[in-house]
Design a binder for these strands. Sequence first.
DNA 1: CAGCATCCGCTTTGATACTG
DNA 2: CAGTATCAAAGCGGATGCTG
Lengths: 214, 214
Amino acid sequence: MRSYGQYCAIAKALDVIGDRWNLLIVRELLLRGACRYTDLQGGLPGIASNLLADRLRDLERSGVILREDAPAPVASTVFRLTERGRSLEPLLRELLRWGAPLMAEPADGDAFRSHWLDVPVQEFVTDAAPDQPPVAIELRAGDEPPVTLETAAGAVRARHGAAQQPALVLSGPPQALVGVLIGGLPLREARALGLRCEGDVSALARLKVAGALG
Amino acid sequence: MRSYGQYCAIAKALDVIGDRWNLLIVRELLLRGACRYTDLQGGLPGIASNLLADRLRDLERSGVILREDAPAPVASTVFRLTERGRSLEPLLRELLRWGAPLMAEPADGDAFRSHWLDVPVQEFVTDAAPDQPPVAIELRAGDEPPVTLETAAGAVRARHGAAQQPALVLSGPPQALVGVLIGGLPLREARALGLRCEGDVSALARLKVAGALG
DNA sequence: CAGCATCCGCTTTGATACTG
DNA sequence: CAGTATCAAAGCGGATGCTG
């Protein structure tokens, strides 16, 4: 991106991370830690290969990420955030908050990756009954690998992989799952969107949706 | 901007406000309240006229701003933020924080508008001696209209216009002024950059630079 | 003058193919 | 795996012109 040529901190920040794809690359590295080139491609559906290479160069030059040649067994390049890059997390959190209401709109054809749920769940969902024994709910969104939600100390955490003893397994299109988890979508409507529940549906009552959403 | 086509709140937010110039338009409306088209042009040096018109349409359609025909005496169109648009303020504040260190780098040829100082000053500068009587410091950056800093209840506020009884008048290029106010630039170096002081230089000691900066 | 719309040259992006 | 190479299409920036 060309510089805005404005002596203003907001414009200067946008000069560095305002370019298309840049903040989504940072999102991936925040969510998944160090990533290989192909991991990034997988988490950024829609990005062109040359653009990813360009952006990684730009972000490296501006001190947001760094490139490391992984040690012998792996023999691969990995990209990770610098401290400066990690300090973008509050900014991404604000973007998430502001963008959350937009998740209620239909999004046919949108790509989805289950790890994108990690932060939103921690941000918006809490345990409605912290006194009760912990519960595990497994999510299977589309064809994505499963994610397990676990209640812990009043909070709800998302973890990659299937649950050993899920009280409930939710499967269906991403919109139906996210609608229930973040959008406050009624269960009936979610079912109409294709949500399928196996197990103890009452476990859903443990998930209290907070934040700016209804 | 084309949609990223990702079912992720961050990507959805960027679909709406990630377009070039969009967040700077929001910055102007947050700083100055309702603006006419030409006010926006003045506060956004570098924007092409057709782009501003395009972006205003986009932002209106996505509910961030609204367009009003001002009442009779003015007979002009004004643009203002909706509630949804105002809710971008925390995001811009994070951008400001993250971008602030970049203000230390040389910025020759960058445009500057004195009202851009409003938020940064409130964010980063506090009154070092709240017990002392209030002090007014007048800033004259480049050819821009003056801004007055006033200590008030431990904080420092920026106000447009000249001061009636300034204890100190600082003038010079924006970088020298901002360097001293936000960048923690030593007075000697600021003088070398062209800073001129008239009045009680010790009044500067009232300004304590806080935040993420040195 | 305020608020655009049009035209034009240039840069950036996107899709795909190819390579060490 | 980690990128280049190529090329078409879209977006941007600058100038200018139009309309109330």
